[in-house]
Design a protein around this nucleic acid. Structure first.
Length: 482
DNA sequence: TTTTGAGTTGTTCGA
DNA sequence: GTCGAACAACTCAAA
């Protein structure tokens, strides 16, 4: 494997700070790599500054993940000669306090793409430069910067397929950057213990998360290896079956930057090259999914109001139902009476994650059958998903609501019964998450309301709405929008 | 990354 | 053995 050249003899440019945010890894980390190459002393820093996320501060599941990811990062840094220094508060104020003490002449970070984070970073960058501190920002999260991709007219893409054609055409599996060595590190004053950030939940609701996930670079590497060896070959088919581990499940690791798209691409291309030519996996379907992740960041950068505003103005007067706390809570708790929706919502609550196919179906049920505004769904996912990501969450909810980019030419309403029969034909996924129905015959498992005695025996709820009638009402609301 | 209904063809089974 | 009703299985187009 060839590696990018590193500068062997750095100029003695004083000490540098590397600010970690959503790039919690030491391998293939451009900011860390550049700082270590150019400076004799490097301080790795994490500053907890939730106000930089505006209305989208980390939710409960994200905070749980972040706690463990920071611990894992600290251990990794100790392995290469440093340790994570942890602070809380305003980024600029914390940095100012450390500049003199540490003899710091430069600050390195990897770029963020959320609108409020961009503003915060611009502000910090300008203020540091005014103080005479060099600031270097890098790309650690994306294959392509959103501002580098434009259509023939020079405007941002609004539809996935042409966007992906453009990006895919020049995409090659570049070699990741090596793990650098930190020299000349010493503790900085005022560094907190990670525990002091109080990221972990007070009451222990997170045991299901711990059973399902290993936050950190090593956990990401393990999932990537398993995916490359086992699931990639059958990905195109198995990725739609929620009972199977047919997807990579790398989304939370990618969100927190414990692995980069470049590392994933490189590792998978390598696995493809190593497999016998007779049955060589097709990498395209999976790369395309990472392409959706890129497209989400592209859209968030170019259309920064989409986390709360419809992308498609045709939805401006759509008649959402008034917020309905009873329906909303039934959906959140997995008690709507629609098995595939409830199974997905319970998987989410228990593990902090939901299979992508089921996200679309549970989302469709909330915004179409219950006709609750997509922001109710986006907010709940934001709080409960370990992979909650403003770009991907926004794209997903706008897509399923029909008001997003790349909208279908029809008003899409998923049928959770048909979808369950198609993608969970033997009911394995439903039985896993709906134990009260585990003994029901498969035909009834998909529509338990057909047997009232089954509902009585099991305690499983009757549907909160009639699927056919609520579908027709949603279509009517769309036809007659103002 | 869909659903539904209409239309067509094929199969089953009882009179 | 034949007929036709009933239904399953499939394709297609519209939304």
């Amino acid at each position: 494997m060839h590696e990018r050249a590193t500068t062997p003899n750095p100029s003695p440019a004083g000490a540098a700070i590397v600010l970690f945010r959503h790039d919690l890894r030491v391998a293939d980390n451009p900011a860390l790599h550049a700082a270590c190459a150019a400076h004799g002393t490097v301080y790795p820093l994490y500053i907890h500054a939730p106000e930089e996320h505006g209305d989208w501060k980390e939710g409960g599941a994200s905070r749980w993940w972040l706690h463990h990811a920071l611990c894992a990062l600290d251990a990794r840094l100790r392995g290469i000669g440093g340790a994570l220094q942890v602070y809380r508060g305003d980024t600029l104020a914390v940095l100012r306090g450390l500049l003199a003490d540490g003899g710091v002449g430069a600050v390195y970070w990897n770029r963020r793409y959320e609108p409020t984070a961009i503003d915060a970073d611009r502000h910090t960058m300008a203020a540091l430069r005014a103080l005479g501190v060099a600031v270097h920002s890098h790309n650690a999260a994306l294959w392509r910067e959103p501002w580098d991709i434009a259509n023939e007219a020079g405007r941002p893409y609004r539809v996935f397929t042409p966007y992906w054609r453009k990006v895919r055409a020049t995409l090659v599996p570049d070699a990741p950057l090596p793990v650098p060595r930190i020299r000349g590190w010493r503790p900085l004053p005022g560094s907190l213990a990670i525990d002091a950030l109080l990221l972990r939940p007070r009451i222990d609701w997170a045991s299901g998360l711990g059973d399902a996930w290993t936050p950190g670079e090593a956990g990401a590497a393990e999932l990537l290896e398993i995916f490359a060896d086992d699931a990639l070959a059958d990905y195109a088919r198995a990725r739609d079956l929620p009972a199977r581990h047919g997807t990579s499940r790398l989304s939370p690791h990618l969100h927190f930057g414990e692995v980069s798209p470049r590392q994933v691409h490189h590792a998978l291309a390598d696995a493809v090259a190593r497999s016998p030519s007779s049955r060589r996996p097709d990498l395209e379907p999976y790369l395309r999914e990472l392409g959706w992740r890129e497209f989400a960041h592209h859209l968030l950068y170019h259309f920064p109001d989409t986390p709360t505003e419809n992308f498609n103005p045709a939805f401006a007067n759509f008649r959402w139902s008034p917020p309905d706390p009873v329906h909303l809570e039934a959906w959140q708790r997995g008690r709507t009476g629609i098995p595939l929706v409830d199974a997905g919502m319970r998987e989410l609550w228990h593990t902090g994650w939901m299979h992508n196919r089921v996200r679309m179906i549970a989302g469709s049920f909330l915004v179409k059958n219950l006709r609750q505004h997509w922001l109710h769904g986006a907010r709940w996912f934001w709080d409960t998903l370990v992979d909650a990501d403003l770009a991907s969450n926004t794209l997903g909810w706008q897509w399923v609501a029909g008001c997003g980019a790349d909208a279908a030419p029809y008003f899409r309403v998923f049928n959770p019964v048909t979808q369950a029969a198609k993608f969970d034909p033997d009911g394995q996924y439903l039985r896993r998450w709906l134990p009260e129905l585990a003994d029901a015959p498969t035909a009834l498992l998909h529509q338990p309301w057909k047997d009232p005695s089954l509902l009585r025996r099991s305690g499983y709820p009757a549907p909160v709405v009639d699927l056919a009638a609520s579908r027709d009402e949603a279509l009517e609301a769309w036809r007659t929008r103002g």
